[in-house]
């Protein structure tokens, strides 16, 4: 692979970071939409969700993420891209811990550390 120019590297890093943020934002929005205890059941639940911003915020995040991910993958090898994208798993677990008080068991922490380590190896080593 030819050495990428600095501008491209910055663009790749920026797109990667933006993708993590917007993916996490979208998942949290869907969680907020789906977890609303007043929502009811069946069709009424969907109507309730559709009348509130959370569902649409989630859809909007995913639409933007779709484009960001295409741009990101067009600049780096696909095998590297999917590995770097695994950081989204870590981000959503950490966000769940802080926002919804979800427990981080020892096994979860081990998983988070391993995925982060793997992403770091790929990101630094190429």
């Amino acid at each position: 692979m030819p050495a990428p120019t600095t501008a491209i590297t910055h663009l790749v890093a920026g797109l990667w970071l933006f993708n993590v943020l917007i993916d996490t934002g979208g998942q949290l929005a869907f969680k907020a939409a789906a977890g609303d205890p007043d929502a009811g059941d069946g069709l009424a639940r969907w109507k309730h969700m559709a009348s509130r911003p959370w569902l649409w915020l989630g859809v909007g995040c995913y639409a933007i993420e779709f484009l960001v991910w295409i741009a990101f993958l067009s600049l780096i090898p696909l095998s590297e891209g999917v590995l770097l994208g695994s950081i989204n798993i870590v981000a959503i677990m950490v966000a769940g811990r802080f926002l919804f008080g979800e427990k981080l068991t020892r096994l979860r922490v081990a998983g988070i550390v391993l995925v982060t380590l793997g992403v770091a190896i790929v990101g630094l080593g190429g």
Partner: peptide
């Protein structure tokens, strides 16, 4: 090598 090592760590984490 970094991709293979990284993939192994990520899969173990998953």
């Amino acid at each position: 090598t970094p991709r293979v090592l990284g993939a192994i760590a990520i899969i173990a984490g998953i």
